[in-house]
Amino acid sequence: MTFAFLVAAALAASPASEPQPLTIGETVVLEAVGAERQVNIILPPDYAAEPDKRWPVIYLLDGAMKQDLMMGAGLMRWGALWGRSQDAIIVGIETKDRQRELLPPSADPDERKRWPSAGESAAFRQWLADTVKPMIEARYRHDGTAFLVGESAAGHFVVETWAESPALFTGYAAISPSLQWDSEALSRRALGDAKRPPLYLSLADEGGATESGMMRLLGVLPTEQPYCFSDRRKQLRHATSLHGLLPEALQYLLPTKADWLEEFGMVLRCERRGGER
Rank of each mutant, 00 (worst) to 15 (best):
T2Y: 12
L6R: 14
A12G: 13
A13I: 02
P15Q: 10
A16M: 12
S17D: 11
P19G: 07
Q20I: 00
Q20Y: 11
P21M: 04
P21C: 03
I24W: 10
V28R: 14
E31I: 00
V33F: 06
N40L: 11
I41R: 07
P45V: 05
Y47S: 07
A48L: 10
K53S: 02
K53D: 00
W55L: 02
W55K: 05
L60E: 02
L60I: 00
D62W: 07
G63W: 08
A64W: 13
A64V: 04
M65Y: 13
M65G: 05
K66Q: 13
K66P: 00
M70T: 09
G74D: 02
L75A: 07
S85T: 05
Q86L: 08
D87G: 07
I89G: 05
I90W: 13
I93T: 05
T95K: 06
K96F: 11
D97P: 00
R98F: 11
R100K: 14
E101C: 11
L103R: 07
P105R: 05
P105D: 05
E111H: 13
K113N: 14
K113T: 14
K113E: 15
G119L: 06
F124R: 12
F124P: 02
R125C: 11
Q126H: 12
A129L: 02
T131E: 10
K133E: 01
A138M: 03
R141T: 03
T145M: 06
A146D: 02
A146S: 15
G150D: 04
H156F: 14
V158A: 07
A163S: 15
E164I: 00
P166G: 08
F169I: 01
S178K: 03
Q180L: 05
W181M: 03
W181H: 09
E184W: 08
A185E: 07
L191Q: 07
A194Q: 14
P198G: 03
L201D: 07
S202I: 03
S202A: 10
A204L: 02
A204D: 02
A204T: 02
A204H: 10
G207D: 10
G208N: 13
A209P: 11
S212P: 06
M214I: 06
M214K: 13
L218N: 06
G219E: 04
P222G: 09
E224V: 05
Q225D: 09
C228K: 09
Q235H: 13
R237C: 00
S241T: 09
H243K: 11
P247G: 11
L250M: 12
Q251V: 00
L253Y: 13
T256K: 10
K257Q: 15
A258I: 00
W260E: 13
L261V: 01
E262W: 08
E263V: 04
F264G: 12
F264V: 06
R269S: 06
C270E: 03
R272D: 00
E276G: 06
R277A: 13
R277P: 02
